[in-house]
Design a protein around this nucleic acid. Structure first.
Length: 1085
RNA sequence: GGGCUCUUAGCUCAGUCGGUUAGAGCGCGCCUCUGAUAAGGGCGAGGUCCGUGGUUCGAAUCCACGAGGGCCCA
């Protein structure tokens, strides 16, 4: 063993020194460069090419705008689980997807081109419009790709799928043809929620999340009852524009209606609505049952309009009528309301459709014709007033649906739409959904609920850039031909194929086919498809279902998919629908959903509110790894509050790991640590090392389970705790082992252990934090070992191995007798429980010092530890005592696990409720009280008695005799005066507070070291520089030096103390230490 | 109106099978430690565990009802 303290330090180690601070963005860009240069991802794929398959389907991101930070959340999950599976050796597809057509894309293109209506598009030309849409897709799929790369997502970017591809469209055609074979395809007139701006209907699932609170004009309108002059039917509506289409007024047959006398006549309305409309003083002149009113007819509100003339307005029954709002008489316009339409259909009412697809009144509505229905409320009200039909008018606030893409208020409109019937597929879909593992579980309940309630799927949209529905209804024979593939189209076509550039409008519209039934020339309907068809077909189209069955068999169904929760009723639903139809099974086996992303104050992010965070900016300001850590560590059951504040918190945690890493590199370089040197068996390392390695094995298990279960946040939280312990206990407790001058086995064990901890940790964290972990790996592993894999991402996932901890667990006979606490059943428990107790003792000791104002620099004679079982005291005394001595700065530890400490402590006894409660039932409380009273004066006696084998405390409570054994009672010792005492988790720690001369010298010695270290730093010395030291002061100083000089010199690396005369240039300080004025001078030697 | 879900410190959230002193992080104040540390440690202020009732020897935890928030459906 060589003393190298005087030899120059020559770094032999391979490790690079670390920069002063951790700069995530620049480090991440460096790693992106490295991965690109070395084809790291391609190597990973090659490495796993023969591995077991793990199939993931990427939910397509709309290639419509730059990525938002909320996309980054989902993409983090996707990347984390794929990277984890890759480290486990799984072969994967890594296919990313873009959603490329449909209404939302058209809306953005319209905005770009400054369009306001469909007419603008028609004038612009469908070809040019299709090109503009295609260009937008190309642009933003490129932007999103580079953003995803920046996030660290590893995908086969050149193999991304695009939903506007002919391949995707063909597969949907196949699905639709299958539906038609089963008779599920139907056209029907329906009242649909309708966006007048977009000029198209929306389907049920597109209404989700679109209800917003708005103010509308609400009107009470009086309508003259035929044959009852001066008597008015009073109706109420919040949509005045629909009054022109009124054909009926609905009453509840079982409700009571009244006629109320007013100045200008008698008003008919529900009794329950009377006071709200007329106040308490209304005079009732007649009462009717709702069913009695059904013969009435009345003058409509707009009978003078040509379209309405000839309509007989009737009072009709409807059991959904209520009197909570309005008048209990409901205005019915079957052409302008969903329920109205259904009611009208049942009763055979006339259907007046007052508006066209753009929301403008059609011909026959006179002064309203050509006007936008959403803008006529004021004029309608004025007109009603002029004609004496307006009873009252007010503003009304309610939740009303909006177009989810352009934010316009929706209207309802009756139109011909195409549907897929859902009834036959409902149960098979429920059955398939039941086979899926939903995470969290309630997502499965949501899906089942949705499926039970789902209506027919409205798949037609009166738009342009979208899936062309391959529906060819024959005008001659009425047969519907549904084209199932491109080949099928070619086979049936008689014109237009030569110009068919792609399966989109306008090209597809120019193709004419022969009707399958009568061979008559037939043209396509002009509608396009719901975009959820585009996304739903992905499991088939991307696996080449129609053309490559081997590929399909290999990867279908997916092992895992993940998206935001709202996708349950969107993508998950459409995929399930299509997959059950084609394959009669679920296309996915595990589904993970997460909640919403808000800003850091919990508000939704909106560009217009100025609180949206741009992905690129966030990546460059906080770093992708920090963002990923934030996302991965969040409980997906709750909304995440995302922002720079939370990111700073994450960064601070990262800093803890950085500090450990930096500490290791600093000293490993100084010592020339060689990680390839023979390893010291873990069993032979100190308990501190074995403890840390035990914790590491635990972390490996936790992390593995959390990733297997798709609950990565649990792993991340465990990793955070591990890093805290690594820094604040393992390194803190072990640091002297690294800077001591001896190069012995203990030092080697320390280096090897910390090296193993760090290099294992980066592998465990690699899926979550791919950049930094690889950066650390490059420095710690690859530089030291040229044969190591070239990236952390090419290493194997760690496997927990507790056997390395070595040394059989031995329980002594006296430990068996120690009945108070459970014994460890493994080496792991032995190591970890003991260290836990040591940490508890230290925490309590520090607490005691703080409370009794005894600074840690003041050595104390003794710490007395109580409440720790015998076997554990023994372990600590043998192997862990140094940590207590050093942390608490005491000269000795005294263990008092069960002895009587009458001099120091009051002993109190408390019942162990868990043990006694079930046995004593309702006597428990009384026994507890009795025991506490007895123990107040005889606690120590009770304790000694009870802990003897076979004895028990006998109490008489409420006339009954109760025996308490040692397991039934918990004794606590409360120290008396003269001791500094603290208690933590059942452990009591008492410090002796008497300070003698020896302890006083010890204090000064510590103060001196502290002062000298400060001066060293001020003088700009390196931690390894040796010094010459001069100390001067009163007698107290010299007494201290006499006792502690060697120790002080060693601590501050002084080669000589008070030798010769200090030079002029010596650094100098003159502090007063614990009341002793001292002069300190030092020079570098 | 129906369903699901949530409500714990100023903020963000843990809290296992029901067990008797309800915790952490952040923020705030005081103190302390520091030869890796913009770090760490201790103390303090801050709690009607949403409310009421029930079950139980014992309830933040289970049940019922109610209030409030979120989501979904109508």
């Amino acid at each position: 063993m060589s003393d190298d303290s005087s030899s120059p330090i020559m770094p032999k180690s391979a490790f690079e020194p670390l920069p002063d601070e951790l700069d995530f963005p620049s480090m991440e860009r460096r790693m992106l460069g490295l991965w690109a240069d070395e084809d790291t991802f391609e190597r990973l794929r090659a490495k796993n090419a023969d591995g077991p398959r793990w199939s993931f389907f990427d939910g397509p991101i709309t290639a419509n705008n730059p990525m938002g930070v909320h996309h980054a959340w989902g993409r983090t999950y996707k990347d984390v689980y794929q990277r984890y599976r890759a480290m486990r050796g799984y072969h994967q597809r890594y296919q990313n997807g873009f959603d490329c057509q449909g209404l939302w894309l058209e809306v953005e293109v319209e905005k770009d081109l400054g369009f306001n209506s469909k007419r603008d598009i028609e004038e612009f030309g469908l070809e040019a419009f299709a090109d503009a849409c295609r260009e937008r897709v190309e642009k933003f799929s490129g932007v999103q790709t580079s953003q995803s790369v920046r996030l660290g997502q590893w995908m086969d970017w050149d193999d991304s799928y695009f939903t506007h591809s002919d391949n995707n469209i063909e597969h949907i055609w196949h699905f639709l043809r299958r539906c038609n074979e089963r008779g599920w395809i139907a056209a029907a007139q329906r009242a649909m929620p309708w966006c007048a701006r977009c000029g198209t209907a929306l389907s049920q699932h597109e209404l989700i999340d679109t209800y917003e609170e708005v103010e509308h004009d609400a009107v009470y309108v009086r309508l003259s009852i035929h044959g009852r002059p001066g008597t008015w039917l009073l109706i109420w509506t919040t949509t005045p524009w629909t009054l022109a289409a009124n054909v009926a007024a609905a009453v509840h047959p079982d409700l009571t209606y009244v006629e109320v006398a007013a100045d200008d006549g008698r008003y008919l309305l529900a009794e329950a609505a009377m006071s709200a409309v007329f106040g308490e003083v209304a005079e009732v002149v007649a009462t009717h049952q709702g069913s009695d009113l059904l013969d009435l007819t009345y003058d409509g509100p707009f009978d003078d309009l040509p379209a309405v003339s000839g309509v007989t307005h009737r009072v009709i029954p409807w059991t959904d009528v209520g009197a909570d709002e309005g008048t209990g008489i409901v205005h019915i316009a079957p052409g302008a309301g969903e329920e109205d339409f259904l009611l009208g259909r049942d009763l055979g009412l006339e259907v007046l459709v007052p508006i066209d697809e753009n929301g403008n009144y059609t011909d026959g509505y006179d002064w309203l014709t050509g006007r936008d229905a959403r803008e006529v409320a004021d004029d309608v009200v004025a007109d009603l007033r002029k004609r004496g039909l307006l009873h009252r008018h007010h503003t009304y606030t309610h939740r009303y649906p909006h177009c989810w893409r352009c934010q316009e208020e929706l209207v309802f409109r009756v139109d011909d739409e195409w549907f897929i019937r859902a009834d036959e597929v409902r149960q098979p879909m429920l059955d398939a959904a039941a086979t899926v593992k939903w995470i969290p579980e309630y997502a499965g309940a949501r899906m089942a609920d949705w499926l039970r309630n789902m209506g027919d799927w409205n798949i037609s949209r009166r738009r342009y850039w979208g899936l062309p529905l391959p529906f060819y209804p024959c005008r001659s024979c009425g047969h519907l031909t549904v084209i199932g593939s491109k080949a099928h189209l070619e086979e049936r076509a008689i014109a237009g194929m030569d110009q068919l550039r792609e399966l989109h409008r306008p090209w597809i519209d120019r193709v004419t086919i022969r009707c399958e039934s009568c061979e008559a020339p037939t043209n396509r309907i002009d509608a396009v498809g719901d975009a959820w068809l585009d996304a739903g077909i992905v499991p088939f189209s991307t696996l080449g279902y129609l053309h490559n069955s081997a590929e399909f068999e290999n990867w279908y169904p997916a092992d895992f998919i993940t998206e935001m929760r709202e996708q349950i009723r969107l993508w998950f639903y459409s995929m399930l629908f299509m997959s059950v139809t084609i394959q009669n099974q679920s296309p996915y086996q595990s589904v993970f959903v997460y909640e919403k992303l808000n800003d850091e104050t919990g508000r939704a992010m909106h560009k217009s509110w100025g609180n949206a965070i741009d992905f690129g900016e966030a990546a460059e300001r906080m770093g992708a790894d920090v963002m990923r850590w934030l996302y991965a560590g969040h409980n997906p059951l709750y909304n995440i509050n995302f922002g720079y504040g939370p990111a700073t918190e994450v960064k601070r945690r990262m800093l803890t790991l950085w500090n450990v890493y930096s500490f290791f590199v600093t000293y490993a370089r100084l010592d020339g640590f060689d990680p390839t040197a023979p390893r010291i068996p873990v069993a032979e390392r100190p308990d501190l090392d074995r403890w840390a390695l035990s914790r590491l094995q635990g972390l490996i298990d936790t992390m593995t389970a959390s990733l297997d279960d798709y609950l990565v946040h649990r792993g991340v939280q465990a990793a955070q705790e591990f890093v805290e312990e690594l820094s604040n206990w393992y390194v803190r407790r072990g640091r002297r082992r690294y800077w001591k001058s001896d190069s012995d086995d203990d030092k080697q064990a320390a280096y090897q252990t910390l090296y193993e901890l760090l290099t294992s940790l980066v592998r465990l964290l690699a899926p979550v934090m791919p950049f930094w972990t690889d950066d650390i790996y490059q420095n710690l592993v690859r530089r030291a070992d040229p044969d190591a894999p070239s990236s952390v991402h090419l290493t194997d996932w760690p496997k927990a191995d507790y056997s390395i901890l070595g040394k059989e667990l031995v329980i002594d006979f006296d430990e068996v007798l120690d009945l108070i606490r459970p014994k460890p059943s493994s080496i792991r428990e032995d190591l970890e429980w003991n260290m836990d107790v040591v940490r508890t003792i230290v925490t309590a000791g520090r607490q005691a010092r703080s409370e009794f104002n005894l600074p840690i620099r003041q050595p104390l004679e003794r710490v007395i530890v109580c409440g720790v079982p015998n076997w554990q005291c023994k372990r600590i005394r043998q192997r862990l005592e140094e940590h207590i001595l050093e942390e608490l700065n005491v000269e000795s530890v005294e263990y008092q696990p069960s002895a009587i400490l009458g001099d120091f402590f009051e002993v109190t006894a408390k019942i162990d409720f868990k043990s006694v409660g079930p046995r004593l039932r309702n006597l428990t409380k009384a026994v507890a009280t009795e025991l506490e009273e007895r123990a107040e004066h005889h606690g120590d006696y009770l304790e000694r008695f009870t802990t003897e084998e076979g004895y028990a405390i006998r109490l008489h409570v409420e006339g009954k005799q109760v025996e308490l054994g040692s397991k039934d009672v918990v004794f606590q010792r409360i120290p008396k005066e003269g001791l500094a005492v603290a208690k933590q988790d059942g452990v009591i720690v008492a410090l002796t507070t008497t300070i003698n001369d020896r302890l006083r010298r010890g204090r000064l010695s510590r103060e001196l070291v502290h002062a000298i270290q400060g001066l060293r730093r001020d003088a700009g010395l390196e931690v390894s520089d040796r010094i010459h030291l001069w100390l001067d002061g009163p007698a107290a100083l010299h007494e201290t030096l006499a006792a502690h000089e060697t120790e002080i010199a060693a601590e501050v690396l002084a080669l000589a103390v008070n030798e010769g005369t200090p030079p002029e240039s010596a650094a100098e300080a003159a502090p007063t230490l614990n009341g002793v004025p001292v002069k300190v001078r030092l020079t570098q030697s």
